[in-house]
Simulated scan of single mutants.
Amino acid sequence: MTIQAVFFDLFETLITEFENGRRVSRRSYDYRTLLGIANEDFKAEWALRSDKRMNGHFASFREVVSDILDAKGLPVDEEALESLYQSRIQEKVLPFQRIQPDIVAMLEQLRGRGIRIGLISNCTEEEVTAWRHSSLAGYFDDCVFSFEVKCSKPDAGIYRLACERLEVKPEDCAFVGDGGSNELDGADRAGMRVFHAFWYNTYIQSEYLKLGSPKELLLHL
């Protein structure tokens, strides 16, 4: 099978938020002081809204936090909310400033082979504000962000949409990801050839071919 396009996951595949097992960002948030809600309660509510954050049900970071506060019967402090929003943007900028050379080399070689490159990312608006200014963006023919298309991995629809936008068939494509959000199974169900990016995140297991480094992908296409 000739691969015409390769689609990548973003976080923990092309960029990573961790170094030596710890988050690069050392930011911590005192939600009780800022919003009047205990940290553990806020994190639990945030996690409960994960799917709706990714699939665009909530239009913005503000809507998510407002919904959490409303559920707890708490008022919205606009100044505190804006402070949290800006802090989260800065936190999510950091991985884009630490792109590894072997990732860039892999993308350059794919381009050199005439293979189209796409992105399929489960994300929210504030997580990818740095994307278009990053050194990665220029290598991609198209990017599908879940919050924009109102569909998220592992729904087969997001993979089919990505293929349609690049005018390729799923069976002529490969998907590369670390396995979060059951994305590998989703890509497989959509008909793509699946590779497990095993160079950053190594705790998720799967039945798919594991790649220990970005350059290994090139050996299997």
Rank of each mutant, 00 (worst) to 15 (best):
76 V>T: 12
216 E>D: 10
111 R>K: 15
90 Q>Y: 08
45 E>D: 14
11 F>H: 12
58 F>N: 08
120 I>H: 00
143 C>A: 15
197 A>E: 04
152 S>Y: 05
217 L>K: 00
3 I>R: 00
63 E>I: 07
108 E>G: 08
5 A>V: 01
126 E>I: 13
166 L>T: 04
13 T>Q: 05
53 R>T: 13
112 G>K: 06
113 R>E: 07
55 N>Y: 09
49 R>Y: 10
177 G>W: 05
201 N>E: 15
133 H>T: 09
94 L>W: 04
28 S>R: 15
110 L>H: 00
80 A>M: 07
52 K>Y: 12
213 S>N: 10
205 Q>L: 12
48 L>V: 10
22 R>M: 09
100 Q>S: 13
62 R>M: 09
221 L>V: 09
89 I>P: 03
196 H>T: 08
143 C>T: 11
122 N>K: 07
162 A>P: 03
70 D>R: 11
121 S>I: 02
105 A>Y: 09
73 G>N: 03
219 L>G: 04
38 A>I: 02
97 Q>K: 11
191 G>K: 04
34 L>G: 08
216 E>V: 04
127 E>Y: 07
22 R>L: 11
198 F>M: 03
118 G>D: 04
29 Y>G: 08
28 S>D: 14
27 R>G: 11
216 E>I: 02
22 R>F: 06
175 F>G: 02
56 G>V: 12
115 I>E: 00
95 P>K: 07
71 A>C: 06
67 D>W: 07
95 P>C: 12
178 D>E: 10
95 P>A: 11
197 A>I: 04
11 F>K: 07
189 R>C: 13
79 E>S: 14
212 G>V: 03
27 R>N: 14
121 S>K: 02
2 T>K: 13
12 E>M: 14
22 R>V: 11
4 Q>G: 04
192 M>P: 02
113 R>Y: 03
63 E>K: 11
106 M>S: 02
112 G>A: 07
20 N>E: 15
105 A>V: 09
21 G>C: 05
19 E>K: 15
148 E>G: 04
215 K>E: 13
12 E>C: 07
2 T>F: 09
96 F>A: 07
110 L>V: 01
200 Y>D: 10
216 E>A: 09
101 P>Q: 12
35 L>F: 15
83 S>N: 11
23 R>N: 05
188 D>G: 09
76 V>Q: 08
216 E>W: 02
166 L>C: 08
9 D>L: 12
55 N>A: 08
166 L>W: 03
16 T>R: 11
8 F>K: 02
172 D>N: 13
204 I>V: 14
102 D>I: 09
221 L>A: 05
30 D>L: 10
130 A>Q: 03
185 D>G: 12
99 I>G: 10
179 G>M: 06
41 D>C: 02
59 A>Y: 08
186 G>Y: 05
23 R>C: 07
